[in-house]
């Protein structure tokens, strides 16, 4: 298995509390996620979609020696994989912007119909910036976004990974959406309050 002696051991060590193991684990997962993403896209598949759930599962499959890791631990791997997905996608976005154009992005489209590649890159970067600021406020909320938006994890999987209840995940998701709306649309004063 591809370096599974490292990754499984690191995963276990990290789960047992060795924070340094995470530093070594992350780049390995990052690379794997990236590799799988490219592989998924290179297949003859109509629509050129990336399925983060499938991707994260495949990464788990490929990297972790499942005879040594309890099934319950996979959520933690998924959390790291979500983080890796986050980095991978944002790195692509930044790379794209570095290569193809300069300057700051201007607006954030709200749906992905017919979005150009530039717009997608800009969206990701803006979301990433907003998430960093959110993380300073409330780390867990930003991690919920990471798990769900970037990692494609379900509410339950997110809850397991972060060690909270699904209800907490739902609340955090709501807060995050509210936050992001604010972050992306500036500090326009609200015109009216709901009554």
């Amino acid at each position: 298995m591809q370096g599974d002696a490292d990754i499984t051991g690191l995963l276990l060590a990290w789960r047992a509390g060795d924070a340094g193991a995470f530093d070594r684990l992350f780049p390995l997962i990052y690379d794997e996620v990236r590799r799988i993403a490219r592989r998924q896209l290179n297949r003859e598949h109509p629509g050129h979609t990336l399925d983060s759930t499938a991707l994260v599962h495949e990464a788990y499959f490929r990297l972790v020696d499942q005879t040594r890791v309890a099934w319950a631990d996979r959520s933690h791997f998924f959390a790291v994989a979500a983080q890796a997905m986050h980095r991978v996608l944002v790195d692509y976005a930044r790379q794209y912007r570095a290569e193809k154009r300069g300057g700051a992005p201007e607006r954030v489209p709200l749906t992905d119909d017919m979005l150009s590649v530039e717009e997608r890159a800009d969206t990701l970067i803006l979301i990433d910036d907003a998430l960093r600021r959110l993380a300073e406020l409330d780390e867990r909320v930003s991690r919920v976004v990471e798990c769900r938006f970037f990692g494609g994890l379900t509410e339950e999987e997110t809850a397991q990974a972060l060690g909270v209840t699904a209800r907490t995940v739902r609340r955090d998701w709501t807060k995050a959406r509210g936050w992001l709306h604010h972050a992306l649309n500036g500090d326009a004063r609200h015109d009216r309050a709901l009554s």
Partner: peptide
């Protein structure tokens, strides 16, 4: 306002991977 805006359309509605696919 927060609760209301949480209901609004958001880029978070589309999974990041789907959003990023053509870019990647």
């Amino acid at each position: 306002a927060l609760l209301a805006s949480a209901e609004a359309l958001s880029p978070l509605d589309t999974p990041a991977a789907a959003l990023a696919a053509p870019l990647v």
